[in-house]
Design a protein around this nucleic acid. Sequence first.
RNA 1: CAAGUAUAACAGGUAAUCGCGGCUGCAGGCGCCGAAAGGCCGCAGGCGAGGAAAGUCCGGGCUUCACAGGGCAGGAUGCCGGAUAACGUCCGGUGGAGGCGACUCCAAGGCAAGUGCAACAGAAAUAAACCGCUUCAGAGGACACGUUCGGGAGACGGACAUGCCCUUCGGAGUAAGGGUGGAAAGGCAGCUUAAGAGACUACCGCUUUUCUGGUAACAGAAGAGGCAGAUGUAAACCCCAUCCGAAGCAAGACCGAAUCGGGACAAUGUGGCGGCCCGUCACGUCCCAGGUGGGUCGCUGGAACCUGUCGGCGACGACAGGGCUAGAUAGAUGAUUACCCAACGACAUAACCCGGCUUAUCGUUAUGCUUGUAUU
RNA 2: CGGAGUGUGGCUCAGCUUGGUAGAGCGCUACGUUCGGGACGUAGAGGUCGCAGGUUCAAAUCCUGUCACUCCGA
Length: 114
Amino acid sequence: MNFSENLKKNSEFQKVYREGNSYANRYLVMYVRKNHLDKNRLGISVSKKVGNSIVRHRLTRVIREIYRLQEERFLKGLDIVVIARVQSRDKNYREIEKALFHLGKIHKIVDISE
RNA sequence: CAAGUAUAACAGGUAAUCGCGGCUGCAGGCGCCGAAAGGCCGCAGGCGAGGAAAGUCCGGGCUUCACAGGGCAGGAUGCCGGAUAACGUCCGGUGGAGGCGACUCCAAGGCAAGUGCAACAGAAAUAAACCGCUUCAGAGGACACGUUCGGGAGACGGACAUGCCCUUCGGAGUAAGGGUGGAAAGGCAGCUUAAGAGACUACCGCUUUUCUGGUAACAGAAGAGGCAGAUGUAAACCCCAUCCGAAGCAAGACCGAAUCGGGACAAUGUGGCGGCCCGUCACGUCCCAGGUGGGUCGCUGGAACCUGUCGGCGACGACAGGGCUAGAUAGAUGAUUACCCAACGACAUAACCCGGCUUAUCGUUAUGCUUGUAUU
RNA sequence: CGGAGUGUGGCUCAGCUUGGUAGAGCGCUACGUUCGGGACGUAGAGGUCGCAGGUUCAAAUCCUGUCACUCCGA
């Protein structure tokens, strides 16, 4: 990931929740906040209600992979938190990808030129 | 071939591209940061979750604390022998239960130490006479025969005695039979008896003694005893035997910013109060203590794993050889494409490490054995 | 990671210690009362005691396993 790093601290997550805007659809919730840096920071959160550790790890990997492969389509200078909802537990890569870019378009942080 | 039973193994594979975490190496046109040690980036190579990694139900290693020795309390285990570092695990036996069988299952010490509890039903629940059966005495009644009385031969009636039967009251004997109940005073058959009864007898059961076999649990044989010690319950209190110090890697050890605390130095420096000096407060440098944010170690070479030989029925042990096989710290295994297989793959992610147990699980394979059917 | 606790009618809880009848309040239904509603009175319905197995004559209660939820410490 050339332009991005991970969001790690709980306080940073809390900052995004408080100061950012949120949109949601059936599978995901996305919070976005400007961080005034020249790169993005991505945080992924999956609740214990979604499933056991196998399910939770798989979802985080899928979401991170989607972001990694199409990183250049996102605008820069953002803190992004993606929360997986219960409905997403059995969904495959393609469905999660559609849901993520759907939210990106609502936030107007994705390059729509494609 | 079908059904079953026991044990064991596997847990999608191959290739390509992109991506992630450690490790090792680098001669990177002296790449970047740093005084250095080293770190970051890059390149190459190799390694990278499970049979249950799960639940956290037991046992141990390791660490810190406590500790002369012994006991109480509390907890755990519970047929016998063995294996093991240890165990509630495993192996081999004994006894019992289930199955035609292969085989499977059993918290399997002690209610013949004490205490407690046993609803409802039933006469009675750890103890018994409610009904019944037998007998004795009294009362009443029916019948039969006899004697006698009435004017009395007959019929009829009355009185008395005897026999037998019925009803009722009381005493005694009796646990054979009776409905209830999970459980009713050893079971069953006979003898005896007024009726009955381990009162007695045979067989079975229980307890116990001796002998034989076995390390033992126990098994077999012979004898004795009584059956008023004899219901069930110890996953009721409890008794007996054995074992157990407590907490846990977020244990613990080390390095240590900033702020705060104490001291020293410097020297009258800077700033605040003040017109100025003195004074006072803060700032500076160094040292000490504390140990927060953070970092390093603990952290993976092990009662491990693989192969072989030997000992043992077996669990397991001994010896020889072989290679090194995750170590993250918000937490590394994913995505896409193609092919193979009947198939999209089941259950499921290490977090200090081992030995077990339990629970979840799509399926595939191998071997031994049992039962049935068919053929030879 | 470690520790503790709770699952009982629609809701909130008792009963479990010491095994034998499942109970209270609110809610619900019907009737009465009222012009009507509320309140009140009378009667009634409603529970596999989270699930599975075991001990026992008998289990909500005792034992074992399992599932879900809640709280606490760091």
